[in-house]
């Protein structure tokens, strides 16, 4: 039995200039589930998830055909303010990218730009978010130190905490462990599994074991097309498509 659909891509084509990066992609993202996008480099999976918070608009000379839904809202409709979408759909990027500010300011930034001024509330929220991202113990004594002094793995958990503080409904992870060591990766995977209780999660990953470990659903992209989509368990044990099978068994990619 399927869950509630949280986000949906319908007949999505996407272009960088004349280059078509996505071809007729249809995909449902279920609420409180982890959906993984796998595929070789350049297959369009990162481009695809950046459509869910309208991040691709920042890239000049791009065009989108098709529709993206968040619940019943068509988010790529020109009348929708991207700021409203991004307050509901957060993102964690490939490279840990804390602002060159203190740890505290990094977390409180999202609250402040959303108009929250209550200092006590912000302080509490910063603590909650850091605890949620399992980094509180490591930083609680140096909240006002620069976030850039943290290690790569800590920085990435800080970035997750920063995203959590905004209280979005969906979190997009764009290869969150690509530049991290195995221990940090394990911590972040654990965190993702914990977070799906409250969030809908979409994760792009190069690492098929990671997709198998954390996701409930998996989509396999190849050259801009969604080749196969289904329950992760089914896909990794009995892929329907030959190309999927070749990729997940390591024959190419």
């Amino acid at each position: 039995m399927h869950n509630k659909i949280k986000m949906q891509a319908k007949d999505v084509d996407f272009f960088y200039g004349k280059n078509q990066a996505l071809k007729n992609v249809n995909l449902d993202v279920y609420a409180n589930r982890v959906t993984a996008m796998i595929g070789p480099s350049g297959c369009g999976k990162s481009t695809f998830i950046r459509l869910f918070n309208r991040m691709n608009e920042l890239v000049p000379h791009t065009a989108l055909c098709g529709k993206i839904f968040l619940d019943d809202l068509e988010i790529n409709n020109p009348s929708v303010d991207p700021v409203d979408i991004r307050r509901r759909v957060g993102m964690v990027f490939q490279k840990p990218n804390p602002f060159p500010k203190s740890i505290f300011e990094n977390i409180s930034y999202g609250l402040k730009v959303n108009g929250i001024k209550d200092k006590a509330f912000i302080g509490q929220k910063v603590e909650d978010s850091l605890k949620r991202a399992v980094i509180w113990g490591e930083v609680k004594d140096r909240l006002h130190d620069s976030a850039l002094k943290l290690s790569g793995g800590q920085q990435q958990r800080l970035c997750i905490a920063r995203c959590l503080a905004v209280e979005t409904e969906v979190i997009l992870f764009d290869e969150p462990c690509a530049s991290l060591d195995p221990i940090s990766t394990a911590k972040i995977e654990e965190l993702i599994l914990e977070l799906k209780k409250d969030y809908t999660i979409i994760i792009v990953t190069h690492n098929m074991q990671q997709a198998a470990r954390v996701s409930d659903y998996t989509g396999f992209f190849l050259l801009g097309e969604l080749v196969e989509f289904g329950k992760t368990q089914d896909m990794f044990t009995a892929p329907r498509n030959k190309k999927t099978e070749d990729y997940i068994t390591g024959r190419f990619g």
Binding site: N53, M55, L58, P82, V83, R86, R87, G90, M91, F93, K95, N97, F99, Y109, G110, K112, V113, N114, C159, R162, C163, V166
Partner: peptide
């Protein structure tokens, strides 16, 4: 200023002007 700073700021729900002013 790295483009990634702008992207993060916008992804946290900041407007373009907030991003410019604060980041």
């Amino acid at each position: 200023v790295p483009q990634s700073f702008r992207e993060v700021s916008l992804s946290l729900g900041a407007s373009k002007w907030q991003t410019i002013r604060q980041i």
